[in-house]
């Protein structure tokens, strides 16, 4: 069973993504902020981290290195946000995010993406 960590303020988007991950057969842990997520990533072995909102990556305090040890492919980092501008999406991908998914989401596609096999690298 894949372990998924969902990061975001408690609310409808987080509950919705958590339900989609559960439908995909994943074990889900939800946290409120990135600091908690970084601490949980150090302790636990998550396969995927889903961050709701792109703001945590733009204030300069959080880097992908805090969630994923340098040189490793795991956990995969997905970001779900409302931005659709090419610059923002490219910025996130260059930052190390594996996938950017824009709201409004297609729940079935989201379910497939979260439940997809983990990329193990070459």
């Amino acid at each position: 069973m894949r372990q998924v960590l969902i990061v975001g303020d408690s609310g409808v988007p987080r509950d919705m993504v958590a339900a989609a991950a559960e439908c995909a057969g994943c074990a889900v842990v939800c946290v409120d902020d990135m600091a908690q997520a970084a601490a949980d990533c150090k302790r636990g072995r998550f396969d995927r981290v889903v961050v709701i909102g792109s703001a945590p990556f733009f204030d300069g305090r959080m880097s992908v290195g805090q969630l994923r040890p340098c040189g490793l492919q795991r956990p995969e980092l997905y970001v779900i946000g409302w931005h659709q501008s090419e610059h923002t999406v490219l910025g996130l991908l260059e930052f190390g995010v594996n996938q950017y998914i824009a709201f409004p989401v297609n729940l079935r596609r989201l379910c497939r993406k979260i439940g997809a096999p983990i990329f193990r690298g070459i």
Binding site: M16, A18, L107
Partner: peptide, 10 residues
């Protein structure tokens, strides 16, 4: 929300 999401998926 969880019930609605599950219904929308399945």
């Amino acid at each position: 929300v969880r019930m609605i999401t599950a219904l929308l998926i399945s």
